[in-house]
Design a protein around this nucleic acid. Structure first.
Lengths: 197, 197
DNA sequence: CACACTAGTCAACAGCCGTTGACGACCATG
DNA sequence: CATGGTCGTCAACGGCTGTTGACTAGTGTG
């Protein structure tokens, strides 16, 4: 029996294959439940190569997950519809199966301590702060954090917990409900009262 | 060298000690990162005894985490202040260190597949459905699910990710911001109009 | 051709995991 | 006192984990 043919000697392609396999696995199952051997098998190579290329599982995760999120362009544009843009983004995302979502990968891995740090930094630097910069009024940082919290909550409820109502509902109806709520955080007003505390 | 003295033969106390240690550990670190040996060590007994009492780690987790959440009483009372009650509950919870929070334990363990199912059932049965029963208007189930999503998001952002802005802020200011937002889901308004139908 | 270099494989390490069965120690009851 | 059943301990199983080093097979260069 001849052993299976070796991979062609292409370092760049192999590295990319590992990264792609890692992204898919981490997105679906989270950091803890994905083994180096799983990633290697999905990439069609030896487990040792994964370590050789990335040093350790943790660094592979960091490299696979970072540098992929580009939310900032969402924050640009008129603030009156910012809530709707955010709602539409989070709610229509993930409709293409097999898509890699760094946020989801991070959320699934959040219980892991180094990952929690990674996630905090990513959310803070790529979401909360840029968003807070575009908010007027007091408590901008707090309101941006609460917007992030709601967005994260929706992602967790729908994609991790797989809440039946959220997962099975029409996106349009969801956006219509969520958009004005996020917008309220954007505007920073309490409608019954008229002023911020 | 005499080995350390045996535990007094008290089955009920030992069982309770295991359960308490398991709750603390699962709340802090989640299902995956807590080993049977960790729980046993915290309870001061042999790892084998944990399995003897609970059958398996998974059943221990289920027993440790279920039957502890009693949110329903929050939903009773006047609906006009329901949003504030919810906001106050989620935001002031966990101020006593060492407290066990089943929701947090579940959230930290959510990536694990059987735990995700457990969590979905718990959230659905103990939160979404009772809450939806108290909501008027269309999309009651959806609006209740979105309230749950926001509450979960705040919990994740604050306790798992440890978002700096949320973790370090004054609870009163947070409640003032969150309460009217949750209330909007309660009232089911989509316009800026402040009146309920 | 012979060389150094690199890409890939293989086998194994040490350590952890959940779980099991055999084995003492204790206690209540006969 | 003897006996049966329960409580606790101990050691070990098989399987998994991330990681390492030795080894082979190709490639580009002198």
């Amino acid at each position: 029996m001849s052993s299976q043919p070796r991979r062609p000697r292409d370092a760049a392609a192999t590295r990319a294959a590992i990264l792609q396999a890692a992204r898919a696995a981490f997105t679906r199952h989270g950091y803890e439940r994905v083994g180096v051997r799983d990633v290697a098998a999905a990439a069609g190579i030896d487990p040792a190569l994964v370590i050789r290329y990335f040093g350790s599982k943790e660094r592979l995760f960091a490299e696979a997950v970072t540098g992929e999120v580009t939310l900032v362009d969402l924050f640009a544009g008129d603030r009156a519809a910012l809530g709707e843009r955010l709602a539409r983004y989070i709610l229509t995302k993930g409709e293409t199966p097999g898509a890699f979502d760094a946020l989801l990968a991070l959320l699934r891995s959040a219980p892991s301590d180094p990952v929690a740090t990674l996630l905090r930094d990513a959310v803070d630097k790529q979401f909360v702060r840029p968003l807070a910069d575009r908010l007027d009024g007091g408590d901008a940082l707090l309101r941006a954090s609460l917007i992030a919290a709601h967005v994260i909550g929706i992602a967790v409820a729908r994609d991790v917990i797989r809440s039946t109502a959220l997962a099975g509902s029409d996106c349009g109806a969801l956006v219509a409900l969520v958009a004005p709520v996020l917008q309220r955080y954007v505007d920073g007003e309490t409608s019954t009262d008229g002023s911020i505390a």
